[in-house]
Simulated scan of single mutants.
Amino acid sequence: MSSVNLMAREVAAKIVFYGPGLSGKTTTLRKIYETIRPAHRGEMMSIATEGDRTLFFDFLPVKVERVNDCSVRLALYTVPGQVFYNATRKLVLQGADGVVFVADSQPEALDSNRESLQNLEENLLEQGVRLDRFPLVMQWNKRDIEKTLPVEQLRAVLNTRGVPEYETAATSGQGVLDTLKSITRLVIKDLRAKRIVPSPRPTAPPVENPGAGLEARLSQHLPRPPSQTGLPAHPPSLMPRQNPPQAAAAHAPRLETPAPLATSVPAPAGQRAMGPASALAPGDLFDYARAAEAAFASGQYGTCVASCMDAVRRALAFAGEGTLAQQGFLLRTDGADLLKLQGLSKRVEALRVDDAAFALYFLMQVFTRLNDARLPETA
């Protein structure tokens, strides 16, 4: 399922290239990678084996058009084609927003094409998704080979649903981008129909209250340090003009302290209120979340980002052994957000409030993924 980063105004959608072994899935992604401008692509990762060139996945984040005022980022994956890697296929297919089925046009591959398409339908059904109601594009690959099946025959066997189809030669790139554009259009149309893409931001009038910005709104959800208690509600330069005692008394009811937000977790007497990150944190990571929230509330944004990065590393370790990217993939976290947090943690001296707020947002996303996966396991 796609994810929406409201703070960054970005929608991340996942597209999986599915098909039998050696049908051209990885070659297709490599050609997309070579064609797209460097500014619009991320790093391509691949794990190869002797039996199949892609054992786990290829991951290629590609930035495409804007929807409303949100940018759309596509995460492109491939699955292993070999049948005995079906468990990995299911894992990669989880949360997909669209599929490109890469069919081998050679006559001897017709049966394996049919079996792979049936396997795709079965794996989606396990997730409660019907293939005939899912964004799907057929890619007839290897059309540059002399002995290939007619498109009509491929269509009769594999495309009974009448979804968009394209003839391609992945080695030369012919038709590859047309296929990507087609599945992108279908995915974005589906996201709009499901109302996943947020509506455009309204044009805001000039801000009259300087305290109503991003930092102030986020601070309402986080514990305030003891040093801030008792401070006036406005900075000295913004303090209301002093009125005579009689007028001040008349206006006193308007200066009452507002009630705490319902999203904050009440704390026992003498303890700090629990923030949203610590409320989501597993017991083993609770102290790390509290430290990050305390750093944010005190304006130590670099410390907040560093604490979040430390907590994310420890949280992703519950997914098992592997690199940070592999652990994040297994927990279905946003790869682009993980890379962004890693970059921020390397320059903690010059960070701003929105950087720290993003770090807390991503930490909460990781905690949510842990809870969904029921990790860490308790004895």
Rank of each mutant, 00 (worst) to 15 (best):
103 A>P: 04
49 T>H: 15
61 P>S: 07
80 P>C: 08
46 S>F: 06
52 D>A: 15
58 D>Y: 01
86 N>K: 02
29 L>M: 10
58 D>M: 01
90 K>H: 07
81 G>I: 03
93 L>D: 06
98 G>Y: 00
80 P>N: 14
101 F>M: 14
79 V>T: 15
96 A>K: 01
44 M>N: 13
24 G>Y: 06
78 T>F: 05
80 P>K: 07
77 Y>D: 05
69 D>P: 01
44 M>P: 08
29 L>G: 09
95 G>I: 10
31 K>T: 14
93 L>I: 08
82 Q>L: 15
42 G>S: 12
42 G>K: 11
53 R>A: 10
61 P>F: 00
30 R>D: 11
44 M>Q: 14
84 F>P: 05
32 I>T: 04
51 G>Q: 15
43 E>K: 12
100 V>M: 06
55 L>H: 09
44 M>T: 12
105 S>A: 15
37 R>Q: 13
40 H>V: 00
30 R>V: 03
51 G>T: 14
93 L>N: 05
57 F>P: 00
102 V>D: 08
69 D>R: 01
103 A>E: 08
79 V>I: 14
104 D>T: 09
108 E>Y: 07
84 F>R: 15
73 R>N: 02
28 T>N: 06
36 I>W: 09
78 T>A: 08
109 A>D: 10
114 R>P: 00
24 G>E: 13
60 L>T: 01
26 T>K: 10
105 S>G: 12
72 V>K: 00
51 G>W: 03
70 C>E: 06
71 S>R: 08
79 V>D: 11
31 K>E: 13
52 D>Q: 10
28 T>D: 00
72 V>A: 06
67 V>N: 02
23 S>T: 12
113 N>T: 03
52 D>N: 11
77 Y>N: 11
82 Q>D: 13
50 E>D: 14
109 A>K: 11
63 K>Q: 12
80 P>D: 12
81 G>C: 08
101 F>K: 00
78 T>Q: 10
44 M>F: 11
56 F>K: 10
66 R>S: 14
26 T>Q: 08
28 T>I: 08
53 R>Q: 12
82 Q>R: 13
103 A>G: 04
